[in-house]
């Protein structure tokens, strides 16, 4: 039985797609057959971040509408075994997502895959609702700033009331926090919320803290999930988060500023 994960946040630009690409890749690297679906109809991005934009022929919406078979739309990742991408349509809008259509595709995918990762669009409208409706697990992507935290709180409320599990009175969707773009130095200076501040408001378990890193933008631009960049803190942090998701006990790192030598501290002070 496959597990359905939704990567969601409410707010835009916090790193849902980056995290979806990294997370799906991480699951596949650990041997799970994984598919990542782009629910951001009309604003197709996942294929770019996954580096498969030039191989998209049919998409998720074509499959929903019965215009293509699922196998025609699924793109197999060239780097990693077990990893597939289901891109979305750039020309349609979110109204193309029907509950029956999404359910049909998810049912078909669940016969084959261990994990189905749904990359949610921003907002709390149709696209986001459809991406979270069938979820078993939710990963809430949040930046350490107040508006992102508030929107995440909102989406948690939506998960608790409008998901399939909520509507049918089943066991609730499990919820975990992925705190992205975390800059320990700016936190130290009081310019960003601390991990604890965010956890106090959202009151859900912490899956991981992804440090702010130039590697993320670099990876996106070349279409490589950042988790494959093993030299970067962000990549390592995503790898840790995937491990924790699978139940491993891994200590959080990158949450405090790196110790600086006397020389660089002196430089900073004079700057």
């Amino acid at each position: 039985m496959s597990k359905i994960i939704v990567m969601t946040s409410g707010k835009g630009g916090v790193g849902k797609t980056t995290s979806s690409a990294a997370f799906a890749t991480g699951l596949a690297l650990r041997g799970f057959k994984t598919v990542v679906i782009d629910f951001d109809v009309g604003l197709r991005n996942l294929d770019l971040v996954m580096g498969c934009e030039r191989r998209v022929v049919f998409d998720f919406i074509n499959v929903i509408n019965g215009e293509a078979k699922l196998n025609q739309a699924l793109i197999k990742d060239k780097r990693i075994e077990n990893l597939y991408i289901l891109p979305t349509s750039q020309t349609r809008d979110k109204d193309a997502l029907t509950r029956e259509g999404v359910e049909k595709v998810l049912n078909e995918l669940s016969k084959e895959f261990d994990y189905i990762l749904c990359d949610s669009p921003a907002g709390i409208e149709r696209g986001a609702l459809m991406s979270l409706y069938f979820a078993d697990h939710a990963i809430i992507v949040t930046n350490p700033e107040v508006s992102s935290v508030r929107d995440s709180d909102r989406i948690l409320g939506v998960l608790n009331s409008r998901s399939r599990r909520a509507e049918q009175g089943l066991e609730p969707v499990t919820q975990q926090l992925l705190l992205t773009r975390y800059d320990p130095e700016r936190v130290e200076k009081g310019e960003m919320l601390r991990v604890d501040d965010v956890l106090e408001i959202l009151a859900i378990p912490l899956l991981g803290v992804i440090p702010e890193s130039q590697a993320v933008l670099r990876a996106s631009n070349v279409g490589m999930p950042v988790i494959l960049d093993e030299a970067s803190n962000a990549g390592l942090a995503y790898s840790d988060a995937v491990g924790r998701f699978l139940g491993e006990d891994i200590e959080h790192r990158f949450v405090t500023p790196q110790k600086k030598g006397l020389f660089s501290r002196l430089l900073r002070r004079s700057a």
């Binding site: 709390i124 508030r150 929107d151 709180d153 909102r154 948690l156 409320g157 939506v158 608790n160 009331s161 408001i201 009151a203």
Partner: peptide, 27 residues
């Protein structure tokens, strides 16, 4: 007993309301 999240609205009609967890901004 659950946290009352941003955007949620709880109305105790003709009675009292007890929340045992936290109430988020925007709730």
């Amino acid at each position: 007993t659950e946290p009352v999240r941003s955007g949620m609205r709880v109305y105790a009609e003709k009675t009292d309301l007890i929340v045992t967890s936290s109430v988020s901004p925007g709730a």
